[in-house]
Write a protein that binds this DNA or RNA. Sequence first.
DNA 1: GCTTGACCCTGCCCCAGGGGCAGGGTCCGA
DNA 2: TCGGACCCTGCCCCTGGGGCAGGGTCAAGC
Lengths: 239, 239
Amino acid sequence: MLTIGQLADYAGVTIKAIRHYHERGLLPEPDRDSSGYRRYTAEHAIKLVKIRTLAHAGVPLARVKDLLGADPDTLVAAIAEIDHDLEERIAQLRRTRDQLAQLRGGDRLFVAPEVAAYLDDLRELGVSERAIRVERDGWILMQTASPEDACLWVTEKRELLTDPEFRALYLDHDAAYGWSPDDPRLPALADRTRNWFTEHPSRSETGPVHNPAIARLAAQSQHGATSPAWDRLARLTRG
Amino acid sequence: MLTIGQLADYAGVTIKAIRHYHERGLLPEPDRDSSGYRRYTAEHAIKLVKIRTLAHAGVPLARVKDLLGADPDTLVAAIAEIDHDLEERIAQLRRTRDQLAQLRGGDRLFVAPEVAAYLDDLRELGVSERAIRVERDGWILMQTASPEDACLWVTEKRELLTDPEFRALYLDHDAAYGWSPDDPRLPALADRTRNWFTEHPSRSETGPVHNPAIARLAAQSQHGATSPAWDRLARLTRG
DNA sequence: GCTTGACCCTGCCCCAGGGGCAGGGTCCGA
DNA sequence: TCGGACCCTGCCCCTGGGGCAGGGTCAAGC
């Protein structure tokens, strides 16, 4: 004949939680003594331990209720599933720990040295600050998503910048941002761009990117930073 | 320039969560495009990854907010603490898994065989069903709290029952439950009880129980099942 | 031009497991 | 008999979102 406080201590649960389980119909209300206090039996205690264990495992109370009334086979199956779920949750927490460790030095990784060097290259080349900002944002995203891919990719891009034709193309694209969509120089630029890509088919744009989703993301992330001239240029380049 | 959906996919977070972080002031609201859609920059993305990592680690959002604005030293200290917390939580989940495994065969352990044998002994002795019910409930509680202690203790109690004087005392106490508190046989019974305990000082009542809290619990759990005669008997026995 | 599906907006209510408070009763030991 | 610990009900609040309603927006294909 336990009081609610004794039962709570026994099961390692708060008094509030026990009353909550009564309200939800998980644990039957026990008889009251002469002064209206709840007096619990051992049956309540073992049922409460069941409830607590399942609840601690993250099982929603509604499902706990079903499980308490289920036949043993169903229960065993459910427990196996819950256990599997717990295992996964532990793995997830471990991953979170790893990410937490990265966060410690996270600000340094704001822009990795390779990326900073690449941005410096662009600046030296005379690229506009607008373009540099867009590049930087894109690289930050890629770095956060997959530092290895980003590092590989940026190194390749720096090599690409040693090609005079690529440098010229880059600068012309940068300049074309502010042109009118009817500018007569656009078709020629589109031609040169297409030619360059046919001559360098497997590099950079379709390069050794492990995660294609990241490439898509990078493309999308720059999509908002477009202009009428660029839109026309894109159409011309595609054909 | 990411939309909210793209940002959510990137950070592995729901759109709802992002809006929630805006409401809580964790993540600044970005500018809107012409149709009122939020457009995010890379700064938002890296900040969101921080928030997500901390939130997944179970840090309350209010604290995440503080941490985002804190100096690096404070941040590093906080991360160490959070990491320690995570480690503990993983251990807790593992314990929950063990308990879950016990739950699988939990109904069989409703009354362990040793306890069942002890209850059978009592029944054979002629003990009342009322007393047997109280005993059973007590043992169930002890079993659930500490199966090893319960098993040790019940074995010792069975040995005790081979002592004729203890058997007689047990039966007399059982019978005394229904007596009037003024019954003249009570003082003599109290004397015999006290004598027995002084002659068997270290057994059973103060026996090899590893967890004293359990002994206290067992005593308390039977406390409600008392009677006027028992209350008087207890007073007499104590002196 | 029109439809269709995917995406976005705000606002509202819901959940578990309590915390806290009000306002009052009960029990137990000294 | 008094103080402190315990119990009762009932109420509203919090977190970290999920779900739904009701409506606007965008892009692709017909």
